[in-house]
Nucleic acid binder design. Structure first.
Length: 481
RNA sequence: GGGGUUGUGGUCUAGCUUGGUAUGAUUCACGGAUGGGGUCCGUGAGGUCGGGGGUUCAAAUCCUCCCAACCCCA
C-alpha cells in the first residue's frame, strides 16, 4: 500500500492505542459520528442495523417467550415522582437534565428520563388491583439522558443513548427473584448467540448496585485493553418502589398485599462492546448475526470479459437468496479499493468473481475475520457461504472466550491482587464487600472497581484481601469503562 | 478558577514573521483510459480565512474583544 494512501484506513494498531483505534473504526466503518451537540452521537445506518438486529432477537427470544408486552411511556417525568423513592432520587440526581418551571409552565420541574421506574410505576399503581393483574410484564424501547461530564466515547459513553427497559411486577418474592435472574441469563445468551460476546454473570456489590434496588445482577464483558464493560443489568427492586408509588393488590386471601418488582435493561453500549472485541487493524469485524450485510460480491472487471463476469455475479447473488448481499458493481473503483472498503465496514464475507473464475465456474470466497480465501463452485457457493457464516460466528465467540478466560486471575493476597490489577487482569479474590473498603480499593489501585460476585456465590472462609475483616464473597475486580 | 496551544473549501493543509483578495492534496461531479489488494489522466464544482470591532488606500496576515476545540495546572 502506498504510504500516502494509508490514512484512508485505520492509522493506529489496535494493540498500540485502543481508544484511538476504536474511534477510527466507528467513524470509518460509518457506524457512528460525533454530533454537533456535546456528549451526543449520531448512529449511522451501519451501526443502527446492529441495534435492529438486537431488537429483533430480543423481541423474539426474550419479550415473546417471557410474556412481556412492549409499550411506551413519556420522556418527561415530574420532579415529585423522582423523590418518592429516596435512594433512587439520590443516585440519579447528579446526572438528570431538568426542564425548568419557566419552560414547562407547570408548578414543578420536569426531568428528562434517565430511566423510567418512576413514571411507569405511577401508571402501575392504577393498573394493578388484583392478583389476577399479576404478573405484569412491560418493556419499552426508548432513549434516555444522563448528563455526564466525562468525555464522549462513541456507543460506550454519551449523554443520550438508546436502550430497552423491562419493568415487571409479581405477587411473590420467589417469582420476582427467579425471573430477575432469568432475564439476566437471557441477556448472556443474547450476547453469546448474537454478538459472539462472552460475559461474566454475577451480582453487584452494595456499592455498585442500582439506586433503589434490593439486588442488582449484571453481565460484564472484558475488553482487549483489560477494562471491563457492563453490558446489561437486571435489578430485583424488592418492594421499595411498590410502597413508594402505592402499588398494591388484593390477593386470593382477600387481603391487601404489596407486590415485588424487577427492572432490567441493555443499551446501545453493546454495539461498542462488539466493535471493540472483534474488530482489527483493517476495520470493523462484525459477527454475521448482526452484520448490516452478509456478503459483498466484488467483480474483477476487464474490458474484454466485463459482461460475462457481471452475468455470473448476478447469478451468484440470486443463489444467495435469504442472505443480505451487496453486488458492488461500481465502475469507478478498482477491485482492490472495494476489498479494503468492505473490510473496513465489516462485511463478514467477500466473494471475488473474475474471468479466471468464470472460466472454471467457481468463485473465490474470503472470510473477514481470518482473511482466509477458499474456492467453491458456483453451485456450492450458497452452502459454502452459509457454513462459513456459521463458523465465523462461532470462531469469533471462541476467540473472545479464550481471551476472557486467560484474563482471569485468582489473587490470594493483597499484593497478588494489586499486581494483577496493574497488569489489567480480571481479578478474583475474597473481600468483605463493604462500601468503604471498596472505595479505598478504588483509590489505592487507580480506579479498579468490583465487577460482580459470581452467581454461584458460596460462603467463603478467610479474610478480606484488603482490610483483613472476615471475607463475605468472592468478587471480581478490574478497571472498567 | 489559572496558564498554554490551535481555529483557512466537506477533510487535511500552505500562506501570517515582513499587509496587496488564498496554496496544495484529498473529497465530490463529469469524461476517458485502467482493472485479481486503496490505478491514472483531463475538465469542473466547492472558501463569510471561527465571529465582532479597530489600524490601513488595502487585513487570512497587525491590534483588541468574544466564541469554540484541545492540552497542562489547581
Amino acid at each position: 500500500m502506498p504510504e500516502e494512501k494509508k490514512d484512508i484506513g485505520i492509522t493506529v494498531k489496535k494493540q498500540d492505542d485502543l481508544p484511538e483505534w476504536y474511534e477510527q473504526v466507528c467513524l470509518k466503518a460509518e457506524l457512528a459520528e460525533f454530533s454537533p451537540v456535546k456528549g451526543c452521537m449520531v448512529i449511522r445506518p451501519n451501526g443502527y442495523a446492529i441495534w435492529e438486529a438486537v431488537q429483533a432477537y430480543f423481541n423474539a427470544n426474550i419479550i415473546k417467550p417471557m410474556g412481556v408486552k412492549n409499550a411506551y411511556f413519556p420522556l418527561f417525568i415530574p420532579e415529585s415522582f423522582f423523590h418518592k423513592e429516596a435512594e433512587h432520587a439520590e443516585g440519579f440526581s447528579p446526572e438528570v437534565a431538568w426542564l425548568d418551571k419557566e419552560i414547562t409552565g407547570e408548578g414543578e420541574r420536569l426531568a428528562v428520563r434517565p430511566t423510567s421506574e418512576t413514571i411507569m410505576y405511577d401508571s402501575y399503581s392504577r393498573w394493578i388491583r388484583s392478583h389476577k393483574d399479576l404478573p405484569l410484564r412491560i418493556n419499552q424501547w426508548c432513549n434516555v439522558v444522563r448528563w455526564e461530564t466525562q468525555a464522549t466515547k462513541l456507543f460506550l459513553r454519551s449523554r443520550e443513548f438508546l436502550w430497552q427497559e423491562g419493568h415487571c411486577v409479581y405477587a411473590t418474592e420467589e417469582e420476582c427473584e427467579h425471573e430477575t435472574i432469568e432475564y439476566l441469563k437471557r441477556y448472556a445468551t443474547l450476547c453469546k448467540e448474537l454478538l459472539a460476546l462472552p460475559v461474566l454473570i454475577g451480582r453487584k456489590t452494595e456499592k455498585e448496585k442500582f439506586a433503589g434496588a434490593k439486588t442488582t445482577y449484571t453481565i460484564e464483558a472484558f475488553m482487549p485493553d483489560g477494562k471491563a464493560l457492563q453490558c446489561g443489568t437486571s435489578h430485583n427492586l424488592g418492594q421499595g418502589f411498590a410502597k413508594a408509588f402505592g402499588i398494591s393488590f388484593t390477593g386470593k386471601d382477600e387481603k391487601m398485599h404489596t407486590p415485588w418488582q424487577n427492572s432490567w435493561g441493555l443499551s446501545t453500549r453493546l454495539i461498542g462492546a462488539v466493535i471493540m472485541t472483534h474488530s482489527d487493524d483493517k476495520g470493523a469485524v462484525l459477527p454475521p448475526a448482526i452484520a448490516h450485510a452478509h456478503v459483498a460480491i466484488v467483480p474483477i472487471i476487464f474490458e474484454d470479459s466485463k459482461e460475462e463476469v457481471m452475468e455470473v455475479c448476478k447469478t451468484v447473488k440470486d443463489r444467495l437468496k435469504g442472505l443480505s448481499v451487496i453486488l458492488d458493481d461500481r465502475d469507478d473503483y478498482t477491485a482492490g479499493w472495494k476489498f479494503n472498503e468492505w473490510e473496513m465496514k465489516g462485511v463478514p464475507i467477500r466473494i471475488e468473481i473474475g474471468p479466471k473464475d468464470v472460466a472454471k465456474k467457481q468463485v473465490v470466497i474470503v472470510r473477514r475475520d481470518s482473511g482466509k480465501k477458499s474456492v467453491a463452485s458456483i453451485d456450492e457457493a450458497y452452502k459454502e457461504v452459509s457454513v462459513m457464516l456459521e463458523s465465523m460466528q462461532h470462531d469469533l465467540y471462541r476467540k473472545a472466550e479464550e481471551f476472557l478466560e486467560s484474563s482471569i486471575v485468582e489473587a490470594k493476597s493483597w499484593k497478588e491482587f494489586t499486581d494483577a490489577i496493574q497488569k489489567r487482569k480480571l481479578v478474583k479474590g475474597i473481600f468483605c464487600g463493604e462500601i468503604e473498603c471498596e472505595d479505598t480499593i478504588k483509590d489505592k489501585t487507580g480506579g479498579a472497581s468490583s465487577r460482580c460476585i459470581p452467581l454461584d456465590d458460596e460462603p467463603v472462609e478467610g479474610n478480606c484481601l484488603h482490610c483483613g475483616n472476615p471475607a463475605q464473597h468472592k468478587i471480581f475486580y478490574s478497571k472498567s469503562y
